[in-house]
Design a protein around this nucleic acid. Structure first.
Lengths: 299, 299
DNA sequence: TCCATTCTCTGACCTTAGTCAGACACTGAG
DNA sequence: CTCAGTGTCTGACTAAGGTCAGAGAATGGA
């Protein structure tokens, strides 16, 4: 990795933790502990199960319980058993809690304003644009790719959303029964693998790789959630699958796609795939691509 | 202020405090408390007075003392009376302390690397560019402008540097005695004022305003430290002085300058100043400018 | 020389943040 | 109905981070 890039990132980290980080805690926790304030914020207008709160903030169950008790004593939240499962308890804001939440919201605005305030209009516009770019790319860097079993709930969630989207976009609709679908076993090692992309634990994309013993490796069911598009995730899936195919000693990677998926087709071209004649008779495919696998792929 | 800008800044703050802030603490304080690690870092290769450490980190004197004791017990620093003033104690790293410092340095590199690592080369370049821009503008927004007495040490420091720079840049050198210098009283209210710009407490620029009762307001001795150039500070001084002149009921602002200060001349033009015939006989001036003061000036 | 001031340190004290081991209530499969 | 598992809570504990009021040494100007 480039040394000057590292140095720039470090300068950024220093300035930002000072200017944003410290102020952030200061604004947030002006009259209550930061932990309580974060929890109150996370409960939000719509309420949350205790379990979700614990997970999102990454806190110990005993600790969350105590924080909630303290907020309850201050009359900011009520905690009551969930209707569906009486072990689960759900938290919602009281009127006073909503007011406190609005106060935190206003403070967050205030902090943002204080960052822009000393700048003139041109500088503000440039700062906001740079922040948008940095935010987008940092978010992209936060996405993790993990190999999971295709029966994993996150994998199933992605596949369901994927099929829904195909049904909506294809001129002909989409019926999984008519398509050449690999069975789950074909996307499990050693016959294949299945990747899920997650952002803050939520699944936001998937991609499968078939590794048939007697044919080239094949990419199947690549999908990126609408909320995660524009993060370069498709390209990252391709690179990751290519690296994994290389690890398995494969030299060729191929895939088929539908003509309505124009963004994907553009991606395949720009990632070095060449269009080839049909290598299968998938009824929903209009284009077939192939790529010679690179020995080593950089990040 | 623009609502969509505020929202973008808030999104940025959220992503960055999560991604950078949390990781930062995690990397920094892996095997010692964050407070100690920060202090050790701040001591640095060259050593520091206890007083400076306290000021830079904004910590209580008792607390710093205790942290230093703990670092001393671990053999990482030595604390000894300063030669100049035996009340002051100075801290420097031991050999072990230097090693620990290097470790923190390496971790900081590691953190920076982990932010870039999941991205491809193009994304990395764009992230680093956006970070550089954001860092520069956040730094610019951190600079404060305060009216001070022209005899204040920070004001004198700036003026000394200003004269040194003029002496170096003017073809003819610069002798303050030959120039039309306002005496200090002319840069004190009600006859004038003097602004100092500071970044993290350090003076990085100055600008004076003369408010003679029988003549237009006049900008004098505007200077920006080389380390703080490119932050739009000159433009900010002009806007601030214009606003203050307007507050004092002035309608015209003027100034003179030397031909070698081409960046300043460009700034005056772009800030709406018009070149006018000489209105004084300052021997070091080649250009004279004037501007009608706006009623209200935006940030 | 005296005295107010400056600088650092110590002791006493406090809150926040967090961990861990159980206790208890509830659920769902068999 | 039983029982293993799940979700939450309580009590007991710890470390980190910090505040405050002096004590004591050194300084610098009158």
């Amino acid at each position: 990795m480039d040394e000057t890039q590292i140095q720039q990132v470090r300068r950024f980290n220093r300035v930002v933790t000072q200017r944003v980080g410290v102020l952030h805690e200061h604004y947030l926790g002006r009259d209550r502990p930061v932990g309580e304030a974060r929890l109150l914020w996370e409960v939000g207008e719509r309420g949350q199960d205790v379990r979700q709160l614990r997970e999102r903030l990454g806190l110990d169950s005993g600790y969350v319980s105590r924080l909630l008790r303290s907020l309850e004593d201050d009359g900011l939240v009520v905690v009551e058993p969930s209707a569906r499962d009486r072990r689960v308890r759900t938290v919602r804001l009281t009127e006073a809690g909503r007011a406190e939440h609005a106060l935190l919201d206003a403070r967050s605005d205030e902090l943002a304003g204080s960052l822009l305030e000393p700048l003139n209009a041109g500088q503000r516009a440039r700062l906001v644009a740079a922040m948008a770019e940095a935010e987008r790319l940092l978010t992209a860097a936060t996405v993790t790719l993990d190999a999971v079993d295709p029966a994993h709930p996150d994998a199933e969630h992605c596949l369901r959303r994927y099929f829904e989207e195909l049904a909506e976009r294809f001129d002909t609709g989409f019926d999984p029964a008519r398509s050449l679908l690999p069975d789950a076993g074909e996307l499990r090692l050693p016959r294949g693998l299945f990747l899920v992309a997650r952002l803050h634990g939520e699944p936001v994309g998937c991609a499968g790789l078939k590794l048939p013993p007697d044919a080239p490796a094949e990419i199947k069911r690549m999908w990126v959630a609408p909320s995660a598009r524009g993060l370069g995730l498709g390209r990252r899936f391709l690179a990751e699958l290519e690296a994994r195919a290389a690890e398995q000693g494969r030299e060729v990677l191929r895939l088929d796609t539908n003509k309505t998926l124009s963004a994907a087709i553009g991606l395949y071209h720009s990632a070095g795939f060449q269009e080839v004649p049909a290598f299968n008779d998938e009824p929903y495919a209009h284009h077939w691509f192939e790529k010679r696998v690179a020995r080593r792929v950089e990040g």
